[in-house]
Design a protein around this nucleic acid. Structure first.
Length: 419
DNA sequence: TCGGCTGACCG
DNA sequence: ATCTTTGCGC
DNA sequence: CGGTCAGTCCAGCGCAAAGAT
């Protein structure tokens, strides 16, 4: 999954200048924006959007999020009257992490603003430390984490953003979180913000104010992080985080997992696998109980709709009509690695589009496909229908799962053998 | 918003 | 109705 | 005289609302 964070310094001008298309061309799964400065934001194809403008000074501050993955919940603000009026924090909940999009105040204009900045950090830190899931925090922090994040560390001593106390905050939080960019790029001269003055950006006289902070427990899920320093349109450059999390349900997985353990979708795309198709089509005996796979088997276009947001994905789902024709008179048990919470919507959609409904169905509760289906076989199907393997026929896309069926004495074949 | 520039102010 | 200016914050 | 240090310093961008034509 790819997450991009960008302080756009006025979303309207980004859109007018055509830079929104450029950032969407990067194809992020989630796009976090800061300094949106607008109560209205456009819809983007394939994304769900959340805008959180300031309530009074609507022409300042404001954060927004575009996401392909539908969050379990979204919270705007964190219970502080003053800061919530400025639309500074959006928290999105996913299966096993929170994503915080944050725009921290600047304290440069006066000592009062600096005090306020410190208070924001105190309150915000308290808020994220209360998380009952691991977190990814991204956004504009308006301070450097260490001297390496500045071009001219000595020139700016004593100014807001560069004070030793501000770097203390980073030292503390970096005991619990990983600075994702720094993990992959230990060298200096990498900046995400340049003063809005002539020559500064060209000469790379900048600072690193934008960060992805990732809970230590997710350290081994990170695959890359970098700065899109050539992306124009704002005084900030977008920053990118890539991690091995499911683009469908948002669950963070270990780097070596081929399938998401939550929803069973394939998250590591191996090179174009040739689908198993045989010329001499096999018959399906009417007396067999069919153990039917959903993704990549009953659903004909799983691959194309892989990364769509959930609602759109279900709407776009197409089912194998030929396959349904062959098995509609059999007793059919749907066994799928899709999560249970989606079962009602999918079954209703299937019936509306094809008139077909399976006799039974079993869904995912957090396991990878072969282990999950083995569990359902041993605990539900076999106790109900018996352990005679000849009574069953599995139509299954996943080779590992087919091997599992064979161990149970059950014939398992890909749909290409029949249609 | 940074950082170069101007003066005032020291010892 | 369509500009330009103003105020505010970075 | 050489060094430090503050300065409603200045410059430049974006937004919305107010003002002007």
């Amino acid at each position: 999954m790819k997450i991009i964070s960008w302080n756009v310094n006025g979303f309207k001008s980004i859109i007018e200048k055509g830079f929104l298309e450029e950032i969407i061309a990067q194809d992020p799964d989630i796009l976090c924006l800061q300094e949106v400065k607008s109560t209205e934001i456009p819809e983007i194809e394939n994304y769900i959007s959340y805008n959180y403008p300031a309530s009074q000074l609507v022409n300042f501050y404001g954060t927004a999020v575009y996401t392909k993955v539908e969050p379990l919940s979204v919270r705007k603000g964190f219970g502080d009257k003053e800061f919530d009026a400025e639309g500074r924090v959006i928290r999105m909940e996913f299966e096993n992490f929170y994503l915080y999009n944050v725009y921290c105040p600047s304290g440069a204009s006066s000592p009062e603003r600096l005090d306020r900045k410190y208070r924001f950090y105190d309150e915000f830190t308290k808020y994220v430390y209360k998380s009952n899931k691991p977190s990814i925090i991204c956004g504009d922090f308006n301070r450097i984490s260490a001297e390496i994040d500045a071009k001219n560390p000595k020139n700016i001593k004593g100014k807001s953003g560069f004070l030793p106390e501000e770097q203390e905050w980073f030292k503390e939080i970096l005991t619990k979180y990983v600075d994702a960019f720094r993990k992959f790029h230990p060298e200096g001269d990498n900046f995400s913000w340049w003063p809005n003055r002539k020559g500064f950006r060209e000469e790379n006289k900048g600072y690193r104010f934008d960060y992805f902070l990732v809970s230590n427990t997710f350290d081994n899920t990170l695959t890359d992080s970098y700065i899109l320093k050539d992306q124009m349109g704002s005084d900030h450059a977008p920053i990118v985080l890539e991690l091995n999390s499911c683009p469908v349900c948002g669950t963070v997985n270990n780097n070596d997992n081929e399938f998401c353990y939550q929803c069973g979708i394939k998250i590591i795309e191996t090179e174009e696998e040739e689908e198993d198709v045989r010329e001499d089509k096999l018959e399906i005996p009417k007396d067999k109980i069919i153990l039917l796979d959903l993704n990549y088997t009953l659903i004909a276009n799983s691959k194309e709709i892989r990364t769509m947001p959930l609602d759109k994905k279900i709407k776009s789902q197409k089912y194998e009509a030929d396959l349904i024709n062959l098995i509609k008179d059999n007793y059919v048990i749907l066994i799928t690695a899709s999560p249970y919470r989606r079962s009602h919507k999918i079954l209703r959609d299937l019936k509306e589009k094809t008139g077909f409904e399976p006799d039974e169905s079993f869904w995912n509760f957090g396991r990878q496909p072969p282990a999950l289906k083995k569990y359902w076989m041993e605990n539900e199907v076999i106790p109900q229908h018996g352990d005679d393997g000849d009574k069953y026929l599995a139509i299954e896309s996943n080779p590992a799962t087919r091997r599992m069926y064979k161990k149970l004495g059950i014939e398992a074949k890909p749909k290409g053998d029949f249609i």
